[in-house]
Amino acid sequence: PEAADLRALARHLYEAYLKYFPLTKAKARAILSGKTGDNATFVIHDMKSLMEGEQFLNCRQIPIQEHHISGQGPTNAVELRFFHSCQSRSAEAVREVTEFAKSIPGFTDLDLNDQVTLLKYGVIEVLIIMMAPLMNKDGTLISYGQIFMTREFLKSLRKPFCQMMEPKFEFSVKFNTLELDDSDMALFLAVIILSGDRPGLLNVKPIEQLQETVLHALELQLKLNHPDSLQLFAKLLQKMTDLRQIVTDHVHLLQLLKKTEVDMCLHPLLQEIMKDLY
């Protein structure tokens, strides 16, 4: 493809990214470095501040069955309640990623079953990549950037909740050294979604063709946007391998939670995605 077409594709995906993802990397980094001018970020660092911060987390919360909770003691309830908030936000994020996927030129022309498969397998990878800009070595922004939750607090939760975020922090801290910006991210996310090797795809060829075009656009974008960063394109593609391992581990952890936590009900949309996944 012509360079001009690839630049147009990059612009289009960046615009879609800005349209569908409310918290950009630029905004997140401004909040994390304290450059937003206000001090509105609420910090959750222990159980007390978690309870105080819960009002922020109430976005479309799944009602939790009190009679189940009462048998478990207050601390367990807080963890489960927090986990439910995370699920609500994840389900909302899946909707955002779906809209972004639909904006990738050619995506909606693919077989509908293949669109489903690409989302089913791609969406957790995308969500994990999108966590990276929200994180630093000390913690992560949550709730659209209104809250900063410390890494130490997440590590202090009871097992297996404490094991859920640590691998994402380790990945994100390394990923952030690549210093991608939002316009790079938009192309990278599209590349992840358009993976032709997802299990059960019916018609791989058109997906690979779409991915190849986006890969060209990404390669050109990185050359122009990061002229001094050697091998950035190759380094970024290598991250896709690490990402698959993180997703596999994440899914296994969720399956474990489902077995061990009596009160855990997985959000129906997330259930759909997790079912028979790896």
């Binding site: 909302e92 909707r95 779906t98 509908l112 669109q115 489903v116 079912k275």
Partner: peptide, 20 residues
């Protein structure tokens, strides 16, 4: 198709808020 009902819905609906 039944197995991925919500994903199908999300893909086929417009950007209007879907009841999650």
């Amino acid at each position: 198709k039944e197995k991925h009902k919500i994903l199908h819905q999300l893909l086929q609906n417009s950007t209007s808020p879907v009841d999650l």
